[in-house]
Simulated assay, not measured.
Amino acid sequence: MSSDGAYVQYDLPDIDTVALERALWVLVALSLIGDVVTTFVGLHLGLAESNPVARSAIEGYGLLGMLVLKALAIGVGLVCRPLLPEAYRPIVPAGLALPWTIAVFINLYMISMTF
Rank of each mutant, 00 (worst) to 15 (best):
M1V: 00
S3T: 10
D4H: 00
G5N: 00
Y7E: 14
V8A: 13
Q9F: 11
Q9G: 01
Y10E: 03
D11V: 03
D11H: 15
D11M: 06
L12Q: 00
P13L: 11
P13W: 05
P13R: 08
D14L: 11
I15S: 09
D16I: 05
D16G: 07
D16T: 02
D16P: 10
T17I: 09
V18Y: 09
V18A: 15
E21D: 09
E21V: 04
R22W: 11
L24V: 07
W25E: 06
V26G: 13
L27D: 01
L30N: 01
L30A: 02
S31C: 12
L32Y: 10
L32S: 12
I33H: 02
I33N: 00
V36E: 04
V37T: 04
F40C: 09
F40N: 06
G42M: 03
G42L: 00
L43G: 13
L43S: 10
H44M: 09
G46R: 14
G46H: 14
L47M: 08
L47I: 03
L47R: 00
E49Y: 05
S50V: 06
S50F: 07
N51S: 06
N51A: 01
N51E: 03
V53N: 06
A54F: 05
A54M: 10
R55C: 09
R55W: 08
S56G: 14
S56I: 11
A57N: 05
I58N: 02
I58T: 09
E59T: 15
G60F: 05
G60T: 10
G62P: 02
L63D: 11
M66S: 04
M66P: 05
M66A: 14
M66D: 07
L67T: 03
L67A: 03
V68Q: 04
V68K: 06
V68W: 10
K70N: 05
K70T: 01
K70S: 00
K70L: 04
L72P: 06
I74E: 00
I74C: 08
I74N: 03
G75N: 12
G75D: 09
G75V: 06
G77K: 01
G77A: 05
G77L: 13
L78E: 13
L78M: 14
C80E: 08
R81Q: 12
R81Y: 15
P82L: 10
L84F: 07
L84N: 02
P85C: 12
P85L: 10
E86M: 11
A87Y: 11
R89Q: 14
R89H: 08
P90R: 01
P90D: 02
P90L: 13
V92N: 11
V92I: 15
A94M: 05
A94Y: 07
G95T: 06
L96P: 13
L96I: 14
A97E: 09
A97F: 07
P99A: 06
W100K: 06
T101C: 03
T101K: 01
T101H: 00
T101S: 14
I102K: 07
I102W: 12
I102P: 04
I106Y: 15
Y109A: 12
Y109Q: 12
Y109G: 14
Y109F: 03
M110R: 05
S112V: 02
S112Y: 12
M113Q: 15
M113N: 02
F115Y: 11
F115A: 15
